[in-house]
């Protein structure tokens, strides 16, 4: 047992090369035949998906594989639920688990980076020569757990529901009454913009909203600052040390002023 791992590894590989040379089969044409059949199937599957997608949908009207395209991008009316392609759903759902501001970076950067490091490092921390799955219980359990958690997160991400702005806007009268700004038309207009501009895709307000990316509950935000502060904040959140939230300057001064009035008027139901 004096021989070290490197030496044993080299012996294994030397034996592998020897076996392949003596008893192996030629890559061309024997193995490449399998590859060609498989490649043909891949092209057929891709073509079939494209055909089903095209013939089942019509413009923005979705079929079973989704629409050809949705409406043109419009930064002004954010009545739209952001949704990445399916293979990012697991990440998308992680964000809902780590929703407190201090923990957002765990989901956005921490877990993906650790995952990538674990993948890259795999051949270096799993140095045993054993290759048979049944003799690698730790690796197999880790693999099954990884696949299960990715599958669950993808499934949860795929089925996660977020309210549409058009549904949220019907709640504005209720908010106005409970927060006591029903007699302030500017604040009501701001509330409607708030409901329609996708704010609740991240923030929560009066029990509505997603609570994504660590965005705070805004139900009592008006107790903290005045309207002009909120307008400045919306114009450039980065200036206030918030790098998660994008700028809403594109809404225009008039709309921002209404939003500011709405936020300032949202002092919470208790202090009405």
């Amino acid at each position: 047992m004096a021989r070290d791992l490197g030496e044993l590894n080299r012996e294994d590989f030397a034996r592998y090369k020897d076996d392949v040379k003596k008893e192996g089969k030629p890559f061309f044409p024997r193995a490449i035949f399998h590859d060609t059949v498989m490649s043909f199937i891949v092209v057929c599957v891709i073509t079939a998906l494209a055909v089903i997608w095209y013939y089942d949908a019509d413009g923005v009207k979705p079929g079973i594989l989704g629409p050809w395209y949705t409406e043109p991008a419009d930064p002004g009316t954010t009545d739209f639920v952001p949704r990445p392609d399916w293979y990012f759903y697991f990440l998308f759902y992680l964000l809902r688990i780590f929703k407190w501001p201090e923990t957002v970076f765990i989901a956005t950067v921490g877990i993906p980076t650790i995952g990538l490091m674990l993948l890259i490092g795999l051949p270096f921390y799993d140095r045993r020569r054993e290759r048979r799955p049944l003799h690698r219980p730790v690796a197999m359990v880790a693999a099954v757990l990884t696949i299960l958690s990715m599958a669950v997160l993808t499934w949860k991400g795929a089925t996660a529901k977020e309210a549409l702005g058009s549904e949220l806007v019907t709640l504005v009268p209720k908010w106005a009454e409970e927060q006591g700004f029903a007699d302030n038309p500017e604040a009501v207009k701001g509330a409607e913009l708030f409901a329609q501009s996708g704010c609740l895709n991240c923030h929560t307000y009066m029990g509505q909203g997603a609570g994504n990316l660590g965005a705070p509950n805004l139900s009592e935000i008006g107790a903290t600052n005045d309207a002009s502060y909120f307008v400045q904040y919306l114009t450039n959140p980065a200036a206030f040390g918030n790098t998660v939230m994008g700028s809403y300057a594109y809404l225009g001064q008039e709309n921002l002023a209404a939003l500011g009035d709405f936020l300032a008027a949202s002092k919470g139901t208790s202090s009405k």
């Binding site: 409406e71 991008a73 930064p75 952001p82």
Partner: peptide, 27 residues
């Protein structure tokens, strides 16, 4: 896949990208 998702410049593309860019900002 992520960069290609934006290119059609429809609502799906645009808002997924806005979120994606904001996520980058948390690093």
């Amino acid at each position: 896949g992520f960069t290609g998702y934006l290119l059609p410049w429809d609502q799906t593309a645009y808002w997924a990208t806005v979120v994606g860019i904001n996520l980058n900002g948390t690093a």
